[in-house]
Structures are given as C-alpha cells and as structure tokens.
Write a protein that binds this DNA or RNA. Structure first.
Length: 563
RNA sequence: UGCCCCUUAGCUCAACUGGCAGAGCGUCUGACUCUGGAUCAGAAGGUUCCUGGUUCGACCCCAGGAGGGGCAACCA
C-alpha cells in the first residue's frame, strides 16, 4: 500500500504551490480561497474551482477560505449565501475562514484614502459615457480625464463626501491614476469605487460607495493572507491591476493570481446569467431542477458528491479553454454508482405476460443478489414470482430481426433471477395494439439453471404483477439538444436549443416490492435501464417517485443507429 | 498603440525547470456467461499547426507565418 498508490494528479498550479512550500516563498502556509458572488447558485464550473482551491489546501496542509464577493448590492441576496454554503459542504469541503468582501469595505476605503494621498488615485466627475469613450480602444490610446490632475487635498475631500453620501449615483467615481495610454485596457485608470445608494443584503443602507471587482478582489485576498489567488482565464488581463494594487497598498509577500481554464460542458450552459434566465423564464423548475448543471440540481437528480469530485479530478486544470464532453461527466457518475448501489428490477413500460403453465394463485420467492459478481458487495432480496408478470414493451417485438435477443413469438428468453420462458401467443386489443403475451415457463430453469445446458441469448427484467409497486419515473435527459447551445442561427438565442424531451414522465412504472421499505433518497441501478434515486422532494411512501440520474452506457442504441 | 492566451490521438484534453508524448470517450478484440445494450481486460490509433533556428537532445527555448480565443460594464 505504498508504492502503487497513484500519485496525486499534478497540474501547473499544484506545481507552483509545491514550489511555494519548498522555497517558503510567501513566509506562510499555502492559502487559497473560493470567492463566489452570491448572485446565483453554484454550478459545475464552480465545483471545479472548489475542488481545486479546497483540494490544494488539503493536499498541502494549507487553508482555504470561503469568501463571498458581495460588492454589488443590486444582484446579491442572502438566499444565495445560504445555498452556496450548503453546496460547498455537500461537496465535502469545510472552509477555514468564512468571510465577506462587504466586511472589508472600511479597510478598502482606508486604502483608497491612502492611494489618494499618494497621488495614485483621483475622483473623476465624468459620466459613464464619457469615461467609456475616453478610455480609447484596443488600438488607440485613451484621453485623460479633465479631473485627473486634481490635488490630493481636493480628491480627499471629494472622496470623503462621496462616502458621506453627498453625491447621487454616477456623479463621481474614484479611479486609480495609472496610464490612459496603457496597452492593457485594464490599466487605463481603472475604476475603484462607484456610488450606489442601494440596499445591500448585509450592509443595509449604511454604505454607498461600492468597490469594483478589481479593487476589492486582490486586496481582499491580501487581507486574508491568501498566497495563490486562483481564477479563470478571462481575468488574465486583470492580473496587472491586481499586482499594482497589492503593491501600492503596501502588502509584503502579497498573493499572486494564477489563471486556469473555466469549465465548459457539452449540452448545457455554465453561466449564471443564462441559468438565471432559465429559472426566471420558467424553462426549468428552479435552480435545483434536476436538469440544471447546478450543484443543487445534480444533488436533487441523485448524483453523489464523490462523482463530482472524481470528475473534477479527471478533467484536471489547464491554461487552455476546454470544452468537456458531457459523456465524460456521465461516465464519472456511472463509475461512482456502479460500485455503490444495489440492483433492482423496474419495468418502465409494462406489458403483461401470462405464464399459461404456471399454477394460478401460486407465488414463489426467488432470491435475487443485489450486486453483480464484480462489485465487492453482498446482499440479496426476495423477489415474488407468479403467473402474471410485467416485462418491458421494448423487450418484445412482433417482427423481430434476427439479432433481437428478446421476446418474440417462438423465442425463448431468461427472466432475470428466474426461469426461461417462451412466448407462444400475442393478445391484441381492438386497435391492434399488443396488450398481453401468453408464454410458458420451463420449471427446470429456475434462477439461472438449465439442466440440459441450453443457453438463451437474452435476459430481460420483469416484475410480478400482483406484488409490483406502481411508481412514477422521471427520465431526465440533456437540457439542450446540441453540444453548443449558443451555436444557433442569427436572431435566436440559446433557448431555441432547449431539448423538448429533457424530462419525460412515466406516471405508472412497475417496480419490485423490495424497494418499498427503503428510505426516500435511496439510489439504485434499475437493471438494463440506468441509475435512479427516489426523489426526496416529491416521493412519499405511498407514491414513490424516481429520478433517472443517468442511463446505462448504451451501445445498443449505437448498434441500432448503425443499422 | 494594440496587449495577452491557445493550437498535441477520430473526439475532449494532459505532459514539472528541454530527456522514450499520456488519459477519458469513441473504435476493435477478448473475458464473465443470470444485466451480452451492463461490467471487466487488452489492443489499435501521433509529421505535437507550418517554416526556419539554438541544442547531444525541442510539444517545451528563439525568429517568422497560419488559424482560434480573451480584453474597450460605474458586472464579477
């Protein structure tokens, strides 16, 4: 148990942190932070960041804070703060410190005054429009504000009056005084504080000058003693202002920003703006709809945190934008559940089977192992078997092709854990639909036996009609019907790529009775169908409701496609 | 007056300071034979975008080129 334990995956960030530890570069232990803005629910992209930040802290004996980047009163809410904390914990992580950027407003203000005194910041009276046009473009220099050369005393007075609430929204703004011709747009006198007479969910109305991201973020990191500030690639250009600010503020051994690629996933969207739209426009039933790529949605769907962590591990972290296939995630989910959950038989689309040679009224109990041979778990449950059963409609075909190894007139299949049966006759209703199969069973073939050694090609799942439990099954599928939901014709948006069949409800499926005594929230593999969980929000002991977490890997569908 | 990042297997991505280019998915083959559409095992699969250069040795460093992306919110 020493040499062959897989080395923890190394990426360029972990290499740097390992180097920090080795060289003592920061003079303190490795410290990271996960800094969400509480303006929405956490999603898979955040999960990647959480696993990275908290993972590094664990692996290197460092710390990781949870910090709410709550600097915009217009969009934030305490309900998101609560949801985020629950989601981080559910993923399996505990923060060392719990902080709020809004608690740093005073400290940030003091730094702002210090910058003004040093001549490194000034109050600008230009309006939003003027500021934008005077910033210049990517290929041309900006124009200095007419207020850029105000004296330190005047700036200090104005800043204090901004804080005191003397000016309306938008009247004035505090800017760093750097270089209006800087090749990096971010460095063209970036805005530090803006006036917002608004209610902040934590600060109430006691504060009216709110720091912008660039001003708040790096300094918050520095205040907390973070060593490596991990963020996504689009902040690359912001690194320069990050370094400028922590240096000007006088922090020794300040934190350093490292950027990594944000997660993009096939067949879904990972942007809070778009997810909010799905929620607000009613395309899904809330942030925790099981189709949502949110942590809350995945949890409700039935995905385990272990699977999400394993997924984060396999996708790794790199410096290049990466679109990950949803199949990779689904694989991680199956891989996790395969070794954990018991197997159970559930017939989604019931078709009655009558065993004409089985005694009427007789019920025998078959012993059904709950795990396949290659899962190192033991256990079994009794399965009632009787004359009338249900099998899945998909397992019967009237005009079956040769390679259809299931039921058809004259063909023999094995009933999982039970007998071999042969279909003799099809019963149809007036509309010509098949409503019943009349079959015979071979009494000598119980539970896998076949005295004459004959083999059948197919094994199908079934339930005993009288003892089966009716349940609702919700088949969740991909939210969007194309890999890139934004790749739509001119004039349309991602909503037009929504998958109309992302939720198919089966109101009356038949499941084996053994599950009736299991707690709500139990997970199973429905053999030959997929992984399911009894839905904690909707399921009751009287009316079980199951969510499909993920289907089984389906090579048959591909075979069919190929023809 | 533009700055910055990226280009590696069919697909999606790894590869620490230059040292035999690796995973997952997909594909193919085999095993289990009561999930044969599950699961497990093995295999095939590469001109590392192009052209030059440095070096004993280049995915990695240098020069030039081609293609893709980020940055011009008082959002984060």
């Amino acid at each position: 148990m020493s040499e062959n334990t897989a080395a923890p995956r190394r990426d360029f960030i972990r290499e740097m942190v390992a180097d920090d530890v080795a060289t003592g570069r920061f003079g303190r232990g490795p410290a990271t932070r996960f800094p969400p803005e509480p303006n929405g629910f956490l999603h898979m992209g955040h999960a990647k960041s959480i696993c990275l930040n908290f993972g590094i802290a664990q692996e290197f004996g460092g710390t990781c804070n949870l910090r709410f980047d709550d600097t915009n009163p217009a969009t934030e809410d305490v309900k998101y703060v609560e949801a985020i904390q629950r989601d981080v914990q559910w993923l399996g992580f505990n923060w060392d410190g719990l902080y709020y950027a809004s608690d740093y407003f005073e400290k940030l203000y003091d730094i702002a005054e210090a910058l003004v005194l040093k001549g490194k910041a000034y109050v600008d009276d230009q309006n939003e429009e003027q500021i934008r046009t005077n910033r210049g473009t990517v290929t041309s220099a900006g124009t200095p504000s007419p207020w850029r050369e105000r004296s330190a005393d005047e700036n200090l007075d104005l800043l204090r009056r901004m804080k005191a609430g003397e000016f309306p929204d938008g009247a004035k703004v505090l800017r760093a005084k750097i270089d209006m011709a800087h090749p990096n747009m971010v460095m063209r006198d970036p805005l530090l504080l803006r006036i917002r007479h608004a209610h902040h969910y934590r600060r109430g109305n006691d504060w009216c000058i709110y720091p912008l991201y660039d001003f708040a973020h790096g300094l918050s990191d520095a205040i907390e003693g973070i060593t490596r500030s991990l963020c996504t690639l689009e902040f690359k250009d912001a690194r320069e202002i990050y370094d400028w600010l922590v240096a000007e503020a006088g922090f020794v051994n300040p934190p350093t920003q490292i950027e990594f690629a944000r997660l993009e996933l096939d067949y879904t969207v990972l942007s809070k703006r778009k997810l909010l739209r799905l929620v607000n426009d009613g395309h899904v039933n809330g942030w925790d709809d099981p189709r949502m790529p949110t942590i809350a949605g995945l949890r409700r769907r039935g995905v385990r945190p272990e699977a999400i962590r394993a997924f984060a591990e396999v996708i790794g972290v790199a410096r290049k934008d990466a679109r990950v296939e949803i199949a990779t995630f689904e694989h991680a989910v199956r891989n996790d559940l395969n070794m954990e959950v018991p197997r159970v038989l559930c017939v989604l689309n019931p078709l009655k089977v009558v065993l004409t040679n089985y005694p009427e009224g007789q019920v025998e109990m078959l012993d059904a192992p709950s795990y396949p041979h290659d899962v190192p778990k033991t256990g079994s449950r009794p399965m009632p078997f009787s004359r009338e059963l249900y099998v899945d409609r998909d397992d019967f075909m009237e005009d079956a092709p040769k390679k259809f190894y299931r039921l058809s007139v004259g063909r023999e299949v094995r009933l999982r854990f039970g007998y071999l049966i042969t279909c003799n006759e099809v019963v149809k209703n007036d509309a010509g639909e098949v409503i019943e199969l009349r079959c015979t069973y071979d009494p000598d073939t119980r539970s896998g036996q076949a005295p004459d050694g004959r083999k059948v090609q197919g094994t199908i799942h079934w339930v005993s009609a009288a003892q089966a439990v009716s349940c609702e099954v919700r088949l969740y599928d991909r939210l969007f019907s194309q890999p890139d939901p934004d790749d739509v014709p001119e004039g349309q948006d991602f909503l037009s790529a929504l998958n109309p069949a992302s939720l198919v409800v089966i109101p009356d499926a038949k499941i084996e009775p053994s599950v009736a005594s299991d707690p709500i929230g139990s997970r199973y593999q429905f053999e030959r169908t997929g992984y399911f969980m009894s839905e904690p929000e909707s399921s009751t002991p009287e009316k079980l409701v199951f969510n499909r977490i993920v289907g089984l890997r389906d090579s048959w569908a591909k075979e069919v496609k190929k023809g």
